[in-house]
Write a protein that binds this DNA or RNA. Structure first.
Lengths: 116, 116
DNA sequence: CCTTAATATGTCGTATGACGACATGTTTTT
DNA sequence: AAAAACATGTCGTCATACGACATATTAAGG
């Protein structure tokens, strides 16, 4: 039981959200680094606009999917670099989404769209 | 080359659209039959509301992803059964979406989320 | 027969989220 | 010193999912 039941209601993830979570799964990053990483992850296909990115980060924080990491070593400036990390909740949701994607492809295979 | 270049701009498909196209890929169906079929395809996970379904069908018709099939054998009533079929364009887009889903899972695998 | 369930199609309002445009600040490189 | 890259954010618009509501037709059961 546990994680699966609690995560199902949040699916499907948008493509942006999927890549943001996947990017943070490897290591914590700040916004700009996520943007660059997602471009690589998607082989250049997805270019997150800042509107999408920071809007998404705000939502993910509010939902507890990610947390903010303090960077106390840096002096406080007006625009602070804020690093984000995936929470256990966020990872559960990402895993559930990956499972969902497999199900979509299984459904496609059942209808004759083989993995070729 | 053909279909791929023209279809890229339409991705990602929403989950609803993906299942509607996949359902019509097997055989033409009318709206209600699509609704039932999608429930099976998604193993009961996705229940299309009529608002989503008929809204999507309208959009897909306008975009030329599906066409309407005449059922002239039936007498004309106020609420006609309208059957829909996938067009070549629609099938190209579905194939492109399936390829995109594979890419998402490949990206997940690259980051350590193995298939199992 | 008649009534109920299943089949079938549609509209409307609301909420979410992607995205481009705009705005601004900081660090590194030339 | 200037320019490029790094970095964070807001705002308005558009697309679309979805539940609620409305209605019509056909099949099945009592």
């Amino acid at each position: 039981m546990g994680s699966q039941a609690e995560t199902e209601g949040y699916l499907p993830l948008s493509e942006s959200t999927f890549f943001i979570l996947l990017s943070l799964a490897t290591s914590p990053k700040h916004g700009y680094a996520i943007m660059k990483d997602v471009q690589q992850l998607s082989r250049g296909r997805l270019h997150l606009s800042t509107g999408t990115l920071y809007g998404a980060l705000k939502r993910l924080l509010e939902g507890g999917w990610i947390t903010q990491i303090e960077e106390k070593s840096l002096p406080p400036t007006k625009r602070m670099r804020r690093a984000y990390a995936l929470t256990a909740q966020g990872e559960s949701i990402l895993l559930a989404e990956i499972a969902r994607l497999w199900e979509l492809l299984q459904a496609a295979e059942e209808r004759g769209f083989a993995k070729d």
